[in-house]
Amino acid sequence: MSAIEVTADAASTWDWPLQHNDGVVKVHNTKEKFEVGLDVQFFTPKEIEVKVSGQELLIHCRHETRSDNHGTVAREINRAYKLPDDVDVSTVKSHLATRGVLTITASKKA
């Protein structure tokens, strides 16, 4: 087995994953509604688990090793977000669109 060094442009500032919002496509937070859109483009609905624990939103995406034309790939992504205090957690819903965006919505407390 041999390790292959990953080279990179020395001049690059390697904070760019965060500059791209790190997979968060949109966030709307109004008086009536909270909505977040997440990029989950490599996962099918059954490979995504969404849970609410207190005011925390937990998203677990995982797919087992699968084959494509070139080889195999397995992925696991975990996200945790603190919901705004005025979110009614009993109204949290999630929907996966075919373009690979997971939209999570909730109403605000009256």
Binding site: V24, L57, G71, V73, R75, I77, N78, A80
Partner: peptide
């Protein structure tokens, strides 16, 4: 491992294998 962005925490793990 877990890193923070403006919205919360995220961690990722991807393994690929090619012949």
């Amino acid at each position: 491992n877990v890193k923070k962005d403006s919205f919360g925490d995220v961690s990722r793990n991807i393994t690929r294998c090619y012949k």
